[in-house]
Design a protein around this nucleic acid. Structure first.
Lengths: 145, 145
DNA sequence: TATTGTTATACTCTATAACTATA
DNA sequence: TATAGTTATAGAGTATAACAATA
């Protein structure tokens, strides 16, 4: 006999809000310890997945494209990223993480102790389950056509 | 015969970063549609759980206490929150959501369609499981002593 | 004509330091 | 002495509008 489901979407969204708050606070403190703002750290985190054009980066960060200029300017001045002209479209500038940028990004992730400890409270099977559920709910893949 | 676990903490943290990025973007757009910044929306979301002193609010939002003055000033000017002197400690000011503030906060939550649709892709049992896992990983309760 | 990245502008967020009222 | 909230300040983030270069 199975338990009746009791977790409605509203309650789950509230818990998600709390979880994000914890994660974001942890991330902000870790980024600050590397003398980076939360936005700068976020840009590095996105670029850690691979190079991206200015506009695509702005879309992933959910901010206006005009904001990226200043954020990337400051990261470039510190040698953490570099701009590279796109070969296929001369309007586009791709942003690429430097080796130092990769190092700093990994350092931030390594310093997120609250989040790491939280995940470490889960068993191997539970981590597997959480992974599958988050992927299902938040990672959208382009459909076939 | 069970599958061998394959989800290490690093991979899970990366997925968490993506998932919460999606949630945060959804939240930011929803807050903007109510003419609120992300920080203002976040303050309302925290206060939706109950009144809080200025300093406690700043700690939950992981920012310096001096920032709260301006954020709460703007929300108060719009009639979404009000300050109330603490009866027990005359230094403390408690911030309370007004009825209009509650309405706007709920409106933001209702407009987060990307997150809602993502969670609706999960079955009742899966939502239950996700709830338990997030609570275990991110909600810390004070221990007995 | 539409799109990419940038600039100019005004407002908001942010941390630091110093202040006041209270504890 | 220590703490809560505020103020002043400088730097960073943010959206809007306008621009040059390119598609």
């Amino acid at each position: 006999m199975t338990e009746a489901p009791r977790t409605d979407t509203a309650r789950l969204m509230e818990l998600l809000s709390v979880s994000l708050g914890v994660y974001y606070g942890d991330f902000t403190i870790a980024a600050a310890s590397e003398n980076l703002t939360a936005s700068q750290g976020k840009a590095l985190t996105v670029l850690r997945r691979g190079p991206a054009a200015m506009r695509a980066l702005a879309e992933t960060m959910t901010c206006d494209a005009s904001n990226m200029t200043g954020i990337i300017d400051r990261l470039e001045k510190r040698g953490l990223v570099r701009r590279e002209a796109s070969p296929s479209d001369r309007r586009v500038k791709n942003v690429i993480l430097t080796a130092e940028g990769e190092r700093v990004t990994d350092a931030i992730r390594a310093k997120m102790h609250t989040t790491r400890d939280g995940l470490d409270r889960l068993s191997d099977e539970e981590r597997d389950r959480l992974y599958v559920l988050l992927e299902r709910a938040f990672v959208t893949r382009p459909a076939c056509s």
